[in-house]
Design a protein around this nucleic acid. Structure first.
Lengths: 196, 196
DNA sequence: CGCCTCTGTGGCAGCGACTGCCAACTAGTC
DNA sequence: GACTAGTTGGCAGTCGCTGCCACAGAGGCG
């Protein structure tokens, strides 16, 4: 790896750390880009070259999350149904967070800041649309169903992510105690009923 | 009603019409607030006094929608279960749109513009949180369920709105043909199975 | 080792959304 | 008809974000 690449990676990490620190200390809105750039030791212009928007300073990890859901879903065997495959994808994506404590801080920041939450939701919606064909291929064909396959796939995706949000909200309410995936299972069970 | 109030209402309508026209003609991002204000015959400052953000120029109807879902849900008889009550609330909220054509244009604009979509999703998430206690009171208590009532209520809400999004996406794909509520029923059926 | 090239960086000016402040105006009141 | 109070508009300023250009330093070459 080049010297250039190494220094750049160092700068990126420094920016991310500084940003998360300042955002949690004094709030997202109250922190200016100029402040983050200055304290991280880079120019404002460079900061915007690395991260396109202020929200990306927090949501960078979310991009990995989104990407991982997609790749994991693709890797599932063909005979796994949509619900199971999506659950596996969420589980895999959640495992990227090194420490749950870091995840808690980051998720809470996103959850409590309007603009961050909006940015996150926007990315998620885009992910959902990407996954539609993948889910469509896994729909249970044994039971004749009404409506187009696309609508049904979208409904499954909306439900999965809706239940994931429900689990996340409760998880944050309880300060990250308990397993997020267990809460997700509870949420899905509440909607679909207990099944094998 | 005062003369003041009347002229103000007139100005508001003029601004809304101008905004929707310009947004659909040349796109949301490509249209500046200055342009809308000028063509509507008011100052920029006044425009921002009426509408806090650029997104509100489109999403104003969404606010009614959101409010109507809440009030309708509250008005449902106590013995109506959560799913049915929420369906009724959505149906009532959808009926506010005078012409489906206007609704189509507005929904499509929101659906295809990233920032508008993010703003809409943010508002909806807030609505969901408001509705949690109302749904919680309507959860089916006849079957013992795992997990906290709050989580289950959030899951139901997430699913309902997730399915609504699925229906909306398909509805927009088909240029607004068919009944949105029928599509919603299809989506819910795909998730929960056909029930009485 | 010295030179050259080329990528990456920083500064600057500028745009657009949005806000606070103040002055001018005018609808409502007595 | 004058006074008051709420409305409006303009101005300046902040903040996120972008295009442009000059410069420095890293990587490749003889």
């Amino acid at each position: 790896m080049n010297l250039r690449d190494r220094t750049r990676q160092l700068a990126v990490q420094e920016i991310l750390d500084t940003a998360l620190r300042l955002f949690t200390e004094q709030g997202f809105e109250a922190t200016t880009i100029a402040q983050v750039a200055h304290e991280a030791g880079v120019s404002q212009r460079t900061l915007f070259r690395y991260f396109g928007t202020k929200e990306d300073l927090v949501g960078g990890a979310q991009d990995e999350f989104v990407a991982l859901v997609g790749t994991t879903l693709r890797e599932q065997p063909d005979d796994v149904d949509a619900w199971t495959a999506l659950r596996e994808a969420l589980a895999a994506a959640l495992s990227v967070h090194a420490t749950p404590l870091d995840a808690l801080a980051r998720f809470r920041l996103i959850h409590t800041t309007a603009s961050l939450r909006a940015a996150y939701l926007g990315k998620r919606v885009r992910l959902q649309e990407e996954l539609v064909p993948l889910v469509e291929a896994r729909l249970d064909g044994s039971v004749p169903a009404a409506g187009s396959a696309t609508t049904r796939a979208r409904a499954v995706l909306g439900t999965v992510f809706g239940c994931f949000d429900a689990a996340m909200a409760t998880w944050l309410d309880h300060d990250g105690e308990g397993d997020l995936l267990d809460l997700y299972d509870e949420a899905v069970a509440a909607v679909r009923g207990a099944r094998a």
